[in-house]
Design a protein around this nucleic acid. Structure first.
Lengths: 215, 215
DNA sequence: TTGTTTCTGTAGTGATCACTACAGTAAGCT
DNA sequence: AGCTTACTGTAGTGATCACTACAGAAACAA
């Protein structure tokens, strides 16, 4: 039996993603991946150079799927109100997190680790996360023109933190209504945007005050 | 040299906390703990039954220290306004997280794992987390009497999610101003509390409407 | 002095780790 | 048919894993 190439690769990635999502980087052993994928270790090493790059590939694929789930939001429609757009984005995020939780679960586990020799899987996650952050900042800057760059960045940081935090809460208590809580976050973020605008209004640089480190 | 008992125990815990915070559960090897603490493996096993309970003890001690850092908030003063109390709580949390980050870092790493055989260290973290959550719900219920039980719970969930999320953000970017962002969270939470109160007002049970599962 | 308790140091145990050497097999190409 | 490419299967490698057996050393008690 030949030409199982791509199929085998996917089965290895499936098994690795499943195990890494359960047990983290160190907990993912080649023997386990081999057992759960039904393929010998030699096949794994034929497809991937080493364990590190196998996990980097897992991150890569999970992120692609996650991005796919987010695509609904990435083309904003002009007729939406600011709140509607924000709520849609958070709802989409919630759904994407529910559909493919391995991405963020593994990613956060990698992110929290600080081993001396950086794993390339971790680096890869940090890269895609940074790219997502950039998009988010841009989206906020477009939707809230009254905010300065720092404000947009703060808002994006809070949004991401809320997503991470609620994801964890949902992992620990799967009964948590993720959608409802993301909805609440939307309300909170809008209020926070107001607060930020009040502090450092863009129109009228004269009003820039308190701890407003110019930049 | 004898009677190094307690001191040795602490040194082992120090080393284990440091390593576990860097590398997670599986990444923490007895050999490494032995090396970094300067004590042989036999001493570690004299003080702790096995690796699992060593890490449970690490969680225990880190939590105690963290709680210690939070003690400033746990006795609320009557004369504070609601916003002041909330901001103080979040500020205290930020400080506690900066002072002893190993607790939450290791805790979150353990929490995200879902190995078949539950580690007692993880279980211990989930316990103290649940207890903290209860306190938080009680605090919100007291400070926001207009909220029902579900509302207080939601608010506590959002607060914890924000703390977790901002902690992660700060781990990934130590330059992040944790205090300022917790400040923003306070504003957002107040607005969210208003939103929750508007949805399910307590005074006047007749107004209880939309998805208001009574309880 | 003799014992007892408390810890440490040495030297292992078998299991599992990531990874590899290499022969074997199936398909496509010519 | 013969050659090449693309995998798979077997059987290992040395290193490291959690953990232990056990003797010895340092303090206290009698």
């Amino acid at each position: 039996m030949r030409a199982h190439g791509e199929e085998s690769r996917q089965r290895i990635l499936d098994a690795a993603a499943e195990i890494a999502g359960e047990r983290g980087y160190d907990g993912t052993s080649i023997a386990l991946v081999s057992e759960r994928s039904g393929l010998p270790a030699s096949s794994i090493y034929w497809h991937f150079q080493d364990k590190d790059r196998l996990l980097a590939a897992v991150i890569e694929r999970s992120f692609a799927r996650w991005l796919d789930g987010m695509s609904a939001w990435l083309r904003p429609r002009a007729e939406q109100s600011r709140l509607e757009h924000l709520r849609l984005g958070l709802r989409t995020t919630a759904k994407a997190l529910l559909d493919s939780p391995e991405f963020l679960r593994l990613g956060l586990m990698l992110a929290l680790e600080r081993r001396p020799a950086e794993a390339s899987a971790r680096t890869r996650f940090l890269e895609v996360r940074a790219r997502t952050m950039e998009r988010l900042v841009a989206a906020f800057a477009a939707q809230f023109p009254e905010l300065d760059a720092r404000g947009a960045h703060s808002l994006a940081t809070l949004t991401m933190a809320a997503a991470d935090g609620l994801f964890i809460a949902h992992e620990l208590d799967p009964g948590l209504d993720l959608g409802a809580h993301f909805e609440l976050v939307a309300a909170g973020l809008l209020a926070t945007a107001d607060e930020l605008a009040r502090r450092a209004p863009r129109s009228g640089p004269s009003t820039r005050s308190r701890k407003g480190r110019a930049e």
